[in-house]
Design a protein around this nucleic acid. Structure first.
Lengths: 141, 141
DNA sequence: CTACATCCTCTAGCGGCTAGAGGAGCAAGC
DNA sequence: GCTTGCTCCTCTAGCCGCTAGAGGATGTAG
């Protein structure tokens, strides 16, 4: 029986750091837990689960606002899950877009690095490409 | 002959927004230009070129600190370009790493979305996976 | 009883801008 | 000359998602 955990133990159990837990409480993402006689926060199992949920969603790159919606959905299990699905899909698109533009950047950087003859700055391909945008096939966002 | 440009014209010519130009001056990335009688900033061609250089480097995802080095290299054309090359290579690696982890996330998100049966929240795969980390093969950073 | 860990609150900082207030300057039309 | 409306100036605060640190209270082990 370890019903009530101090914030440090909650941090260890959930993988969310102590100041981050306090921060989540401050922005209203985590409810304010009850306090001990000595004014310390006491977390129950439900809180730990919610923290782990938040942490995993953050690791998957969801924004706090999206997570706010996801946790409220989680608290309301009778609702249809279309909203959660939509959020995940939307986020998937964002991630795909990000991968596409990073891949384009990767191509440009590779061209820069390959073109470098390791001579002096004034004939350096890296600096050249940066100075003259026209030299690269940068697809604009 | 349009030697001296006001900040708005410099912004249009370089593609860097007005407040961003002032910000770059404030952090010492762009030298403080001379002023007109009426205290307005006056930019020459060299400034426009530097701004375009910075903008392009930012578009390629270089951090301000890296750009600080790159512009100082650019100003010193007799130096060997190993330093510029190293910066570009290092950045390329960062970008590749970022692509790898985003691709992993993409896989997880796809699994979540595909697994969703569009029923109620309490049987929603999206919420489930978020709640229980063990259900996904998330490779930890 | 003394260390030492953990907790508390509060404020400020990170990067890279962006937004807004409140005011001065300037060019064109009447 | 006067007004309109645009650009410019400085200064401060806000964005996101934390992270760090000051300065103090509380809890626990030896």
């Amino acid at each position: 029986m370890h019903e009530q955990l101090a914030i440090g133990e909650a941090a260890r159990a959930s993988g969310v750091k102590v100041p981050t837990i306090r921060y989540y409480e401050q922005i209203g993402l985590l409810p304010s837990p009850p306090r001990s006689e000595g004014n310390r926060r006491l977390y129950g199992e439900g809180d730990i689960r919610r923290l782990a949920f938040i942490r995993h969603a953050r690791e998957l790159g969801f924004e706090i606002e999206a997570i706010r919606t996801l946790v409220s959905l989680q608290d309301d299990p009778d609702q249809p899950c279309a909203a959660a699905d939509a959020l995940a899909k939307q986020h998937l698109e964002t991630v795909e877009q990000r991968i596409r533009s990073l891949t384009a950047l990767k191509g440009e950087l590779e061209a820069m690095v390959e073109g470098c003859r390791h001579g002096r700055i004034d004939e350096c391909r890296v600096i050249e490409v940066l100075a003259d945008h026209g030299q690269c096939r940068h697809a604009h966002h």
